[in-house]
């Protein structure tokens, strides 16, 4: 049992704020009296209710402090960290930003973010293939983001598993690069179904790969007609100003009550 929040912790994951450790003992001693007659328990409980409760708790915290929390999801290597490196450098004077990095192993991505001068926490999920709301809760507790800031959460590179786990984010941003093929949205529909913005990255490589911009959008809209699109290249910088504009609007957008 995790003493800070009362929920069971995922013992195989670790969270590191730079220069801190947060040990997480999980002792369970169950002794109960019991009867021997059969009982039917009508549980009727969502399997993810625990994650969803914590996600709501995170969301409330973010809303109260006006922190724009974004959950960045994509297949491995689509350019999540590259997009963050550019963004953090280019917007340094405009916003206070924080980053939570989710990877199975290593702090390589957090080191890249740290190099931009941004406060970053690395979550290593071990065998786990996605971040969950509990990990975010603890990372945020150590980070204490300032009011009116942006928190970028880079999920584990995986187009399947992170889709089911609400982290408490305001928006989910799915990134796809042009080298991955334009049929990704219908092959991995869940991720596109649950996202609000789709960033199409590596457009500098369009001349070299068979990738139709119309097709990818058509497929993605079949899964999610409300999805918006931005076309960018983190290498050349093309299209990034539209992404920065999107961020500015989201930060300024008044809360719907």
């Amino acid at each position: 049992m995790c003493a800070t929040c009362g929920c069971d912790a995922n013992a195989s994951s670790s969270i590191r704020q730079i220069g801190e450790t947060h040990p997480h003992p999980h002792d369970h001693d169950h002794t109960h009296d019991h009867s021997h007659s059969k009982t039917i328990i009508e549980v009727e409980k969502d399997v993810l209710y625990e994650n969803n409760l914590l996600a709501q708790r995170n969301r409330g915290y973010f809303e109260a402090r006006n922190v724009l929390a974004l959950n960045l999801v994509s297949s491995p290597g689509s350019g999540k960290t590259s997009l963050l490196e550019r963004t953090l450098t280019d917007l340094k004077d405009h916003f206070t930003c924080y980053v939570i990095e989710g990877d199975q192993q290593t702090s390589r991505d957090a080191d890249r973010i740290h190099a931009t001068g941004t406060r970053v926490a690395q979550i290593n999920t071990g065998k786990g293939c996605h971040l969950d709301a509990h990990m975010i809760l603890h990372a945020v507790q150590g980070m204490k983001p300032a009011e009116n800031s942006i928190l970028f959460i880079e999920n584990v590179g995986n187009l399947v598993c992170p889709a089911m786990f609400d982290l408490g984010e305001k928006e989910r941003v799915v990134i796809i690069s042009v080298t991955e093929g334009d049929d990704k949205p219908i092959k991995y529909p869940d991720m596109f179904h649950t996202s609000t913005l789709c960033i199409i990255n590596k457009i500098d490589l369009l001349p070299y790969v068979p990738f139709s911009m119309d097709k990818v959008k058509e497929y993605a809209r079949q899964v999610n007609p409300g999805l918006s699109f931005l076309e960018v290249s983190c290498t050349s910088g093309e299209g990034l100003s539209a992404w920065y504009q999107w961020l500015k609007e989201k930060v300024q957008e008044p809360e719907h009550v």
Partner: peptide
């Protein structure tokens, strides 16, 4: 393999109930 997390959540619910 998010299915493993799902099974773990089911086990936790069963334990609690």
């Amino acid at each position: 393999m998010h299915e493993l997390s799902i099974v773990m959540s089911i086990i936790r619910i069963a334990e609690t109930e």
